[in-house]
Design a protein around this nucleic acid. Structure first.
Ligand SMILES: [Zn+2]
Ligand SMILES: [Zn+2]
Ligand SMILES: [Zn+2]
Ligand SMILES: [Zn+2]
Lengths: 141, 141
DNA sequence: CTTGACTCTATACCAAGTATAGAGTTTACA
DNA sequence: TGTAAACTCTATACTTGGTATAGAGTCAAG
């Protein structure tokens, strides 16, 4: 199977498949005489697995960990479970950040309406007033 | 004020300040004889404003829009409000995506425990079973 | 007068791809 | 058989919002 067919079957782009190969998520396949990549059905399965993991928003590094563990059927599930747990925690963290953010943005937005002008803008005033109470930090160049 | 002092006062790194200058969020400041950047208090205010917007997770493009509008005090708030509305919508969208994802991940994770082995792993089995029902797409190289 | 702290530009790197250019290969069709 | 379209190859640049160097120049204290 050539890369175009694999792309069709997986719904991934050709570039993405080559990208995963560079990232070592997918083993480099055999080549034809004309140097075209030639894939097995195993590669198709692997790619679909990777695609599924990506749709779960796992990072390439997280997927690597799972794939590596997966090669040994006798090993314990602990590593995979730990990776999943950490990832679920990643998501939870991002959700709570975004919820807080949304709250702030909504209350800020409520301070203005389209009839106002910039000089009396409730949104900008609120940003400015937060700005007026600022704080410093460290540096390195 | 030199860039190091500005970095201290804003809590941004020196590289970040130069980065914002390249992105035209911050006007290029005057230079000393030795070509050092020399900032006014206006630049400090501007940077703090930008920092505040970034903490609201606005993109650089969104911030640009707001900053541009802000230069004209007589203009209507409509543009700023539209930017905020779109951004709030961005966030809302991402939250609902992440909530759905979290739900999937949790139910997946519940299918396994640390006493199992990879060959009988509930998590991997569930990924595989989704993989088995796959679908193709388009391509371009 | 030298050391250390600071600044300058330019460049490379991160994630997770996407999008070219320019060259070679295979397939279809007349 | 010729040739044009479709495919594939590598290499490189771009995206976002920065971070991290290298190598050179500048400034202040001792
Ligand atoms: Zn994660
Ligand atoms: Zn307003
Ligand atoms: Zn936005
Ligand atoms: Zn398991």
């Amino acid at each position: 199977m050539k890369i175009g067919q694999l792309a069709d079957k997986t719904g991934l782009s050709i570039q993405t498949i080559r990208f995963y190969e560079r990232k070592a998520l997918l083993a480099a396949p055999q080549r034809t005489q004309s140097n075209y990549r030639s894939y097995s059905d195993e590669a198709l399965k692997q790619l679909l697995f990777i695609k599924q993991c990506r749709s779960l928003d796992m990072t390439i590094e997280e997927i690597s960990l799972v794939l590596e563990t997966r090669t040994n059927p006798e090993s314990s599930c602990e590593n995979v479970n730990a990776t999943m747990d950490k990832h679920i925690d990643d998501i939870k963290h991002r959700i709570s950040e975004l919820n807080a953010l949304q709250k702030t943005l909504k209350s800020m937005r409520a301070a203005c309406n389209d009839d106002k002008k910039i000089k009396e803008c409730g949104v900008l005033h609120r940003i400015d007033s937060i700005v007026d109470s600022h704080c410093p930090a460290k540096r390195n160049d």
